[in-house]
Amino acid sequence: THFTSQQLQELEATFQRNHYPDMSTREEIAVWTNLTEARVRVWFKNRRAKWR
């Protein structure tokens, strides 16, 4: 999946605040970024792996 810079900005900003967002937070992010909750969940999983 290719993310727009706007989507990445929103995802990264949320990641800085919370590395493990809950389901409702992921659903909110999905609405803001026009992505599915599953895409958001996978992005956070991959981002945490990169962060370690």
Rank of each mutant, 00 (worst) to 15 (best):
E27P: 01
T36R: 03
L35A: 07
T36P: 07
W51K: 06
W43C: 02
E27Q: 13
L11N: 01
R26S: 01
T25H: 08
R48H: 04
Q7A: 06
N18M: 08
K45Q: 09
S5C: 14
T1R: 11
L11E: 01
F44S: 00
P21W: 05
T4C: 05
R52F: 14
F15Q: 01
I29V: 07
A38R: 13
V31K: 14
P21R: 01
F44L: 02
S5R: 14
V31I: 14
R26P: 02
W51H: 12
H2G: 13
A38H: 14
I29S: 00
E37F: 04
R17D: 08
R48T: 03
N46H: 13
N34M: 08
A30G: 07
R48Y: 04
W32C: 11
L11K: 01
W51A: 08
R41M: 05
V40N: 01
T1Q: 11
H19R: 11
Q16C: 10
T36S: 09
S24N: 13
N34L: 06
T25Y: 07
S24W: 08
A30L: 03
Q16V: 08
I29W: 02
K45T: 07
Q7R: 03
A49K: 15
M23I: 10
Q9H: 14
H19Q: 09
T1P: 12
Q16F: 07
I29D: 01
T14Y: 15
T14D: 04
H2D: 11
V31A: 14
R26F: 07
T14W: 15
A49E: 11
T1G: 13
V40M: 00
T1D: 13
R17Q: 11
R48Q: 06
V40D: 00
E27D: 06
S5D: 12
M23P: 05
N34K: 10
Y20L: 03
Q16S: 11
T25Q: 15
T4F: 04
A49S: 08
S5L: 14
D22L: 04
N34T: 05
S5P: 14
A30W: 04
S24P: 11
Q6E: 10
Y20N: 06
E12T: 02
Q16D: 06
W32L: 15
S5T: 13
W51E: 12
F15E: 01
L8E: 09
T25V: 09
T1K: 14
R26H: 00
H2K: 13
R26Y: 08
F15D: 00
T33K: 01
V40Y: 00
V31H: 13
K50H: 07
E28Y: 09
R41H: 08
A30I: 02
E12R: 02
Y20S: 04
N34R: 07
W43I: 00
F15T: 03
Q6C: 11
M23G: 06
Q16I: 08
F15W: 07
R52T: 09
T25E: 11
Q16T: 08
T33S: 06
Q9M: 15
Q16G: 07
I29Y: 03
W43V: 01
Q7Y: 04
K45R: 12
D22I: 05
K50Y: 08
L8I: 12
E28K: 14
S24A: 14
R41A: 13
Q7V: 09
H2P: 11
H2E: 12
R26V: 09
L35P: 00
R41Q: 06
V31R: 14
F3N: 03
S24E: 12
A30M: 03
F15N: 01
E27W: 09
E27H: 13
F3H: 03
R47F: 04
A38N: 09
P21H: 01
P21G: 02
Q6V: 11
W51N: 07
L8H: 07
T14I: 15
P21Y: 02
E28N: 09
W51D: 10
I29N: 00
L8Y: 07
L11S: 01
A38K: 13
V31T: 11
V42R: 15
V42H: 13
R17C: 11
S5I: 12
W32I: 15
T14S: 15
Q16P: 03
Q9T: 11
Q6H: 11
L8W: 10
A49V: 08
T36Y: 02
Q6G: 08
E37A: 07
T1N: 13
V40A: 00
N34Q: 10
R47H: 02
E10D: 12
E27I: 14
T36K: 04
Q7C: 05
W32E: 10
F3A: 02
N18S: 05
T14Q: 15
S24L: 12
E12L: 03
L11Y: 01
P21E: 02
E10Y: 15
K50F: 09
H19L: 03
F3Y: 12
T25D: 08
V42D: 11
E28H: 09
E28L: 14
R52S: 10
R39Y: 09
V31Q: 13
A49C: 07
Y20M: 05
E37P: 08
N46E: 13
V40I: 11
I29L: 12
E27C: 11
L35K: 05
Q9R: 12
V40K: 00
T14P: 01
V40R: 00
E27T: 12
Y20R: 04
R52E: 10
N46L: 12
S5E: 11
N18A: 04
A13K: 11
K50L: 13
E37C: 05
A38V: 10
F15Y: 06
Q7K: 05
N18F: 06
F15H: 01
T33I: 12
I29T: 02
T25A: 11
A38T: 10
E10A: 14
K45Y: 10
Q7M: 07
S5Q: 12
K50G: 07
H19P: 10
T33H: 07
R17Y: 11
I29C: 04
V40G: 00
E37M: 05
W32V: 14
Q9Y: 13
Q16R: 10
T4M: 04
T25I: 08
Q7G: 02
W32G: 10
L8T: 07
W51R: 05
T33V: 12
V40W: 01
A38I: 12
N34D: 08
R52K: 13
R26Q: 03
T25G: 06
H19D: 02
Q7F: 05
W32Q: 15
V42E: 12
Y20I: 01
R39Q: 15
V40F: 01
R39E: 15
A49M: 08
A30K: 02
F3C: 05
L8Q: 08
Q9L: 12
V42C: 09
R52L: 15
E12Y: 04
E28D: 09
A49H: 09
K45C: 11
A30C: 06
A49F: 08
K50W: 08
V42T: 13
P21L: 02
R26A: 03
N18T: 08
H19V: 04
T4I: 03
A38F: 13
L8A: 06
E37H: 04
I29E: 01
W32F: 12
R39A: 15
A13P: 01
R47E: 04
R48W: 03
R52G: 07
Q6I: 10
A13C: 11
L8N: 06
Q6W: 15
W43M: 00
D22Q: 06
T25S: 08
S5N: 10
E12M: 02
T36E: 06
W43D: 00
R48F: 04
T14N: 15
S24Y: 08
R47I: 03
W51Q: 07
H2A: 10
P21A: 06
T14A: 15
T36V: 03
T25C: 09
